[in-house]
């Protein structure tokens, strides 16, 4: 496999640099390299990057088994904290949502709810559910591309945090239609998880939102 040097930098996120490499066996290859952060002490920096590199690849594999579209992993280079994976063509939900008619937008969130339900039922917590991490592919699938903060857990607490992050991201970034999208998301989630488990997770989500020191007592109003 060629080195990262052969790739073209296409994005620099907070945590990793993404390179698009020359096709390998006719496949477009995305190289995700977790870069050193100078503001972290070296011991902590190394530990975080290696742990996340390995865990992300493992969980991406498990997600596929649960019926959640994720990129194909080609190679993991632990010393260089780099993962070589399939380049997923499509558009990020974040950039797409404003252009869509309301019905299509709600349908997308319903489908995202189904996918998150599958992850949770299968014991995976995503850890960073944002519309920047979901790609609508050219063949119409929703592909989850970033599992850097994912964990293996069946705890209600962790599931509640996942839903809280989803809801808060909607409120902060897609404030124009956050409430109805979250409702649609929950419907999809409920179809997979069932009524009882969904109620339990939503109750936990509300508890988490009240736990922060200065959360409004009126948080249960409206959505969620």
């Amino acid at each position: 496999m060629a080195s990262v040097g052969g790739g073209r930098l296409i994005a620099r996120g907070a945590e990793a640099e993404l390179y698009l490499q020359r096709p390998w066996l006719d496949r477009e290859v995305l190289v995700k390299r977790r870069v050193r952060k100078r503001y972290r002490v070296p011991e902590l920096d190394r530990r975080l990057r290696e742990y996340r590199t390995v865990r992300e690849a493992e969980i991406i594999h498990r997600a596929k088994e649960l019926g959640v579209p994720t990129p194909v992993i080609y190679l993991i280079d632990i010393p260089r904290t780099t993962v070589y994976m399939e380049y997923v063509r499509g558009r990020r939900l974040r950039e797409l949502l404003d252009e869509l008619p309301r019905e299509e937008r709600l349908d997308l969130f319903h489908r995202v709810g189904v996918l998150v339900g599958r992850l949770h039922r299968g014991g995976i917590i995503h850890g960073d559910l944002t519309t920047s991490n979901m790609i609508l592919t050219e063949d119409g699938r929703i592909c989850f591309v970033d599992f850097g903060l994912a964990e293996v857990s069946e705890e209600v607490e962790r599931r509640g945090v996942d839903l809280h992050l989803m809801r808060r991201m909607l409120i902060s970034t897609h404030y124009g239609y956050a409430a109805e999208c979250f409702q649609s998301f929950l419907q999809g989630y409920r179809e997979v998880m069932g009524d009882a488990a969904t109620e339990e997770v939503v109750r936990k989500m509300r508890e988490i939102e009240r736990r922060g020191r200065y959360v409004s007592e009126r948080v249960e109003d409206g959505d969620g």
């Binding site: 620099r12 996120g13 907070a14 945590e15 952060k37 972290r40 902590l44 944002t130 920047s132």
Partner: peptide
Amino acid sequence: QEVAFSMLGEVTERALAH
């Protein structure tokens, strides 16, 4: 301090990129 501030650094960096 290092762990707490690295955590703050990471979320701030994410938000800045976002």
